[in-house]
Design a protein around this nucleic acid. Structure first.
Lengths: 186, 186
DNA sequence: TGACGCTGTAGACAGTGTCTACCTACTACT
DNA sequence: AGTAGTAGGTAGACACTGTCTACAGCGTCA
């Protein structure tokens, strides 16, 4: 039962460690320790710490993809709302993973798999925005970019309490509704 | 001419180092080296690395306040545009500083001076939003929060090229215009 | 003169990521 | 069957980090 490949085990242990202890605890040596191997072992599969973190982040993008998956039968507007609220809910439920996923200084930039997972997601957002119809003359791709940035900003600023402090509102939901209302037709 | 207090010199050297070498280079020991003192000296003024980084970030917020200062004689709409574009321009011109300012895990949370500088700035945004008039029924404070999150998301995602990759547009200006149009009256 | 703070030095410590030499078990070939 | 080769993991060194503690130089004031 212990025949799980070390490569997979390292990523799995990393995800767990990230959930339990947060991003600063996600050191190469601690991951190796929890996986029950020496600190040099990960090097066999991940030449550098960044590559291991990138693999963990890629697992996070896969989780995110599930979190924003539309429910069957929903129209474009409902799918868009699901995507937006799913994005925020994911960031709220997995703060460490969300922080890692967008810490580009920690990730091997251009790493295969990261852009592969996130770009199709954005394309889906573009399609939904185009399907619902925008309020501005800008092309759907630009509106989708602005909307994504808006959701991401809410997640980011909300994640460390800045938005709560500024607006006096603890729930990010009004902001999400405002963003959706601002960009797409009701 | 060398009578600049070490405390100020450390912050100044830190700001320069951040501009020149980026956030990862901003170690306590390197700052001390460039300030020409031993690595233990900063401890006299900043008990921990986080406190020194917080002081540097506070200098950054002061710079930001200047960057978004409205031009005299402008109406609320123009002031709002100046604030939005100034925020983006600052993030673009000072990527390292911008990254530090919002790396809450690196900053001493609740550090005096950080919230003191950023909250009045947000209040100004609220006033401008209220002055111009919003497109939604949400209170100005919520709209201002959503708009801030939007600008911040554009700055963040644009900073590492994700938005350019997604939208195919290199200039964030269309996104800023879209955000302003989406939230406030033209 | 002598005690006392203030300011900075120097070294130790545990922890990190990376690198290199080695060791072992298994595979494949002659 | 015997042996060479290799994949997979170990162990230790290295330079670097932030923190801590003991100590030295210096001015001030009683």
């Amino acid at each position: 039962m212990c025949d799980e490949p070390l490569r997979d085990r390292l990523v799995r242990v990393g995800v767990e460690l990230l959930e339990q202890e947060g991003l600063p605890a996600l050191t190469l040596r601690e991951i190796a320790r929890r996986a029950g191997v020496s600190h040099g072992a990960p090097r066999r599969y991940f030449p550098t710490h960044l590559e291991l973190l990138s693999a963990i982040a890629r697992a996070g993008f896969a989780q995110l993809e599930v979190a924003v998956r539309p429910r069957p039968g929903d129209g474009p507007r409902a799918q868009l709302a699901t995507l937006a609220r799913g994005y925020l809910a994911f960031a709220r439920a997995n703060p460490g993973m969300f922080a890692l996923m967008f810490r580009h200084d920690l990730l091997a930039s251009g790493h295969l798999g990261l852009r592969e997972t996130s770009l199709p997601l954005f394309d889906r957002l573009v399609d939904l925005v185009a399907g619902v119809g925008t309020r501005s003359a800008a092309p759907p791709r630009v509106v989708a970019g602005a909307l994504w940035a808006n959701l991401h900003g809410i997640a980011q600023l909300g994640g460390w309490g800045s938005l709560q402090l500024a607006t006096g509102e603890d729930d990010p939901e009004p902001l999400v509704s405002a963003a959706l209302d601002a960009y797409v037709r009701g």
